[in-house]
Nucleic acid binder design. Structure first.
Lengths: 251, 251
DNA sequence: ATATATATGTTCGAATACGAACATATAGTG
DNA sequence: CACTATATGTTCGTATTCGAACATATATAT
């Protein structure tokens, strides 16, 4: 019963941005699911049976090389959907999706999503605009990987992550962050140590709290703002949806 | 008159992969345009008035940082289309499109493309599948930027480029390649020198000829094959179209 | 409370790429 | 032909990251 109050589809802003009519129709098909840390939602090349709309969780899209090294391509949180390859027509992608921050989300059967997409209405256009925003995130990751230091990338990663959560805290070991950023664990230790000394974050055994968000924004490379601006531009409805959600839940 | 024989829309495999009915309809709206080296087809954030279907040219999508440094996100050749943001709904993107290899292509008015996309038929699905293939290229670039050496990246870049041309030669200075890869010119000089010594390429003042394609494929990182495989998987029609083109033009 | 697994901190030599300076070579131009 | 702009080759010191080894600290289980 508590869960019914704590969880609602409109906590996912992509869903919340839909016109009432579409939202109601889709809502009836959604299924609330817990998303524990580390859960692999799909494997590279595997078939997707569901798409996911995270509400309180974050999903990391990452690519794993033959030698086991990895790199994060993008993150999906309560602003998005996991499983774009379904409506893009490819069915699969060469990357992996892992729950990076435990929480909940709603899932929708693949066939139902395709059906909704093929209606060609607001849902389709919203999904396509979201996909373009995701593309921006991916390309910016490529640029950032090329030109920016581990320090800057950690800041970007932290900001992108907490933006996709209600909270300013996240559970994540340095080892895992290193996997995401595609760098060594020691590199993350050093970078995080600097941020800690500067009083921007508080770090202890898999638990990070952002103490000074503005400070992080001063240190981060331009990549963060580019991604954020592009999401806001392409999906202005999300902000509106966000505000509505806040007022509905009375936060 | 010669031009009419040398140039035809079906040299762009994305167009050629369309059903006859759609191809004929769209063909009537296309306009052949020369695409000189270095031409900027669109600027970051700028509005697109046309989409481009390259036939004998290659277009580079690159992102330019505030400090002037740059990195290539993806390349578009005769297998694709420039301007996906139009049908994705964003209208603009934060990247720049530059002609990387001079040649020709066909352009189509933005409004007409959107109209075709919104028919929801084969054209829409082809464009979406192409977009997914492009996403793979972008994400693989991100991974490659993180984990692979300049040497390997140069091989990848060369292979991706000649795949998008009929020829095994391209006109491109080391300086420009460095801009694409987001590395120093000296780095490219060194890497290209090694390939030259190994007899894999012939390099001289802005003109590269691939002498031993198989040799390059042995040296390249896995990223090249991942992108190629994904294009073939998502767009099998392109291969078929390719063969038809060869027989039609009698090459 | 003790043992153990896990997380974080620290150090050091090696490898790679950077930034800058300069040398050489070739295409075009007058 | 000589001149000039451009392209490529080479070198050297520096910075960053890597890879590996090892030290310390904290949570969890018994």
């Amino acid at each position: 019963m508590t869960q019914l109050l704590l969880h609602a589809p409109h906590q996912n802003f992509l869903l919340a941005a839909l016109p009432e009519e579409d939202f109601v129709r889709i809502k009836a098909m959604l299924e609330l699911v817990p998303m524990p840390l580390g859960q692999v939602l799909y494997e590279s090349g595997g078939k997707l049976h569901y798409v996911y709309f995270p509400t309180t969780s974050i999903i990391s899209l990452l690519y794993v090389l033959e030698n086991g090294a990895s790199a994060e391509i993008a993150v999906v949180g309560n602003e998005g959907i996991l499983g774009i390859s379904l409506f893009m027509g490819g069915e699969t992608t060469p990357s992996r999706a892992v729950v990076q921050s435990a929480g909940f989300g709603y899932r929708l059967k693949a066939s139902l999503l395709k059906q909704e997409f093929n209606r060609g209405g607001p849902m389709m256009h919203l999904l396509l605009r979201y996909t373009q925003a995701l593309i921006t995130q991916m390309t910016q990751t490529a640029v950032c990987n090329r030109h920016h230091s581990v320090d800057q990338q950690l800041c970007r990663w932290l900001l992108l992550s907490i933006d996709r959560l209600a909270s300013d805290e996240l559970s994540m070991t340095q080892e895992l962050i290193a996997n995401m950023l595609g760098v060594r664990r020691e590199g993350v230790t050093e970078a995080a140590g600097k941020l800690q000394k500067a009083g921007l974050i508080d770090y202890s055994r898999g638990h990070i709290k952002v103490l000074n968000r503005a400070g992080l924004e001063k240190k981060v490379c331009e990549c963060y703002q580019v991604v954020k601006t592009e999401f806001d531009r392409l999906l202005p409805d999300l902000k509106r949806a966000h505000h509505q959600t806040l007022s509905k839940t009375g936060i």
